[in-house]
Design a protein around this nucleic acid. Sequence first.
DNA 1: CGGTATTTTGAGTATCGTCAAGGCCAGTGG
DNA 2: CCACTGGCCTTGACGATACTCAAAATACCG
Lengths: 263, 263
Amino acid sequence: MTTSHHHHAGTGGVGCNLAHFVQLEALPKEMMSDLGRICRVRSYAAGQVVADVGEDLDFIGCVQSGILRMQKNLPDGRCHVVGLLVEGDMFGRVFDGPLKISIEAATGAQVCAFQRASFEALLSRSPELDRVMLLNVLGELDRAREWMIILSTPRVKGRLAGFLLLLCSRYANIDHLLQASEGKVEVRIPIDRTDLAHLLGTRPESISRAFHSLADDGSIAIKRPDLVAIRDLDALAAEAGEDAAEDIPALKDLMQILASRPE
Amino acid sequence: MTTSHHHHAGTGGVGCNLAHFVQLEALPKEMMSDLGRICRVRSYAAGQVVADVGEDLDFIGCVQSGILRMQKNLPDGRCHVVGLLVEGDMFGRVFDGPLKISIEAATGAQVCAFQRASFEALLSRSPELDRVMLLNVLGELDRAREWMIILSTPRVKGRLAGFLLLLCSRYANIDHLLQASEGKVEVRIPIDRTDLAHLLGTRPESISRAFHSLADDGSIAIKRPDLVAIRDLDALAAEAGEDAAEDIPALKDLMQILASRPE
DNA sequence: CGGTATTTTGAGTATCGTCAAGGCCAGTGG
DNA sequence: CCACTGGCCTTGACGATACTCAAAATACCG
């Protein structure tokens, strides 16, 4: 349980290596080691419940690897996915009350768990950490709004295109979600059709049809149900009704790759 | 337009009366007067642009009265509404970069503007204020997720029902949006059909049809295009696919009112 | 009262939700 | 090793819903 096996210059994490969390980079060294002292790694299998609605989570989580999905459970058993958590994302109410959404592991996942009480104490002492948290939530808010934009596209095909674009931009180079080499960009869909349908406000059948419709257009190619190759980023952007393609840096990079060797 | 006509015991606001911002109540007195010192009231007419996308807003805003709408501007001139700001809501990036959404006055509105630099300085000195900001953003995040839930309802009628429910619950007793007296609950729709269509991911025509469909069901009655009377809250909740009705306090109150004199 | 913008209605077409059946893959047990 | 089973994805058909275009009605403003 020590950091001895890490190749990086260890920044003092006890349970886990905090060094690669970009958001925490700005923090002073001693804060990092304080954080390392109160954290433990938790592993979850795909489908496992990380935190249930109403639960008073006793830790603040920070995703290290894998994908977690946030969802709102409806009383009739169904649930709406309202977002995904990937490497570097944090969750858990900091000062507020119990959770309003539940969190499940979408894939096998490891999270860095900070004891809640200790973390809040640290938070009270450190304006820097407080600011990091604020910026983190602010970012989460922006992402939620992006989801709203995607969801407000009238046609399912457009929403799916927007979703794929979001995967390409925000979740690029995260946890094997996106593999880009010259002339080929492949995206792994981290959730099944049913969840994706709930997320995009439609039914699994329509998701399936939308996927194949995009494939027929030549915008994508379906390698496996959960793995698609991006063929025409501009077409996707047009479908999604976004100007997106040109002013998102991550997407420009991908377009470079796609252009470099058109297969 | 001064604060002189307020009956409350003034808490020392210079430009505006901060006393009725519940979120700020927990702050110590001297912080309140510090805040009062760096704030000025700004008034906006309906339709006026408060802040544009990419702009580096030089103040942090806190809505005093009226409704502001947050929207993402598309290059082709259209725009997607991604949320509403009402009394007590704050906006403006605190430490982060330029705005990613633009903000317009949906109705005539007054906002309390804190000079950005001064506010951030205050933030750095006061953990309490910092926490208030954090909680505020956290609340905003929850609301954004509620929007997502509403947006992910497949049928337009259901989305509209969810929207009305949201107006009833969250925006109750705010700025004349909701007038409830015995046996009658009326809601003012703060945005026009076009914006509402963008918000709910559909077209104005469908919004209109959905309104009248709800009216035919007896769930609502359309007094004016922008004023509807709630007739059957349960029916609305059922339409929206939410368990909502029973576990939202504000809605229970409304149901009491509706039950008290069924007209 | 006239002019403009917004809302509503209508008709036709495309899309989507629904139900039902078939196919694909992985894990299980013979 | 192979058949079986169950879950997920896909496909098809049909009815319901929603989008599009166009025009009429209404509300709003001076």
